[in-house]
């Protein structure tokens, strides 16, 4: 049986008295491309912030690589996060640094590699995301799609076991969006990286997702779990069908 990289158990996320979601449980297996999907305001990004340790859960456990992330010390969290990469919606590249400096930063911080090897790794990571030769460019000098790819190169710098993507298709044209989806699949297959994607782009969901959780704002929790293609074939409820068919079949 494939090991679970992430295990979320009876999770509640709340901001003060406002409960955003409760009783959320799911598992992300090693090598999965796991989609967190749902309508706007259902808490997808909040769930991602909990999974990446930016927001503590109000209740429940989040196990990442068998470490209870919800109760771990900051040092343990840092240790876990070193094996994770995150691609933020905007790329979140440091604007005062070149792309090479952005990608080199985690390598300089967490490895004792020589400068030459770091330079080679930077060049490799940029090549893997199709940005060969862009080492000396600043984020302001490249397009939105390229920023996302450079952000992905930085996320991959330390050969992470898990990579999180926050709305990777947001703001991209269909071709760039498709190229990024292809890249996600390539990385998943070639490096065996577990991928967690927060998105509501149906084309991406069906193209890359091998497993998913559907968050329902009305029930403040999980509305469905499983392979998105299977969920489309056998929807457990009307809301998922509505979501996965843009309401075309759901309202029929």
């Amino acid at each position: 049986m494939t090991e679970a990289k992430i295990k979320v158990d009876d999770l509640t996320i709340a901001y003060g008295d406002f409960v955003l979601m409760k009783n959320v449980s799911f598992e992300v297996k090693k090598g999965d491309v796991f989609i967190i999907m749902g309508g706007s305001g259902c808490g997808k990004s909040s769930l991602l912030r909990v999974l990446t340790g930016l927001v503590p859960p109000a209740k429940g456990d989040v196990m990442i690589n068998n470490v209870n992330f919800a109760r771990a010390s900051q040092n343990q969290k840092d240790e876990v996060m070193r094996k994770c990469g995150i691609l933020y919606q905007s790329g979140a590249l440091f604007s005062s640094m070149t792309l090479a400096e952005n990608i080199a930063l985690p390598l300089q911080q967490y490895t004792d590699y020589s400068d030459k090897l770091i330079k080679e790794l930077v060049s490799l990571k940029l090549a893997l995301v199709g940005l060969t030769g862009f080492e000396d460019f600043y984020p302001s000098e490249i397009s939105g799609g390229m920023k996302k790819r450079a952000g992905l190169a930085r996320a991959l710098a330390l050969d992470p076991e898990i990579v999180y993507f926050d709305e990777p298709s947001a703001g991209l044209d269909p071709i760039s969006s498709k190229l990024l989806d292809d890249l996600i699949i390539e990385i998943n297959k070639s490096l065996g990286t577990t991928i967690v994607v927060v998105t509501h782009e149906l084309s991406s969901i069906f193209a890359i997702g091998t497993n998913s959780v559907f968050l329902d704002a009305d029930v403040k929790g999980v509305g469905g779990l499983g392979d998105p293609k299977e969920l489309l074939k056998n929807p457990p409820n009307q809301k998922i069908l509505n979501f996965l068919t843009r309401g075309k079949k759901g309202n029929a």
């Binding site: 490799l124 090549a127 893997l128 199709g130 940005l131 060969t132 030769g133 862009f134 000396d136 460019f137 190229l179 390539e186 297959k189 070639s190 490096l191 065996g192």
Partner: peptide, 18 residues
């Protein structure tokens, strides 16, 4: 997978204009 990654790295889809 290693061979595939080498091929992927060599497959440049655009050249930068410095």
């Amino acid at each position: 997978n290693l061979q595939h990654l080498v091929d992927l790295a060599l497959k440049v889809d655009r050249k930068p204009s410095l």
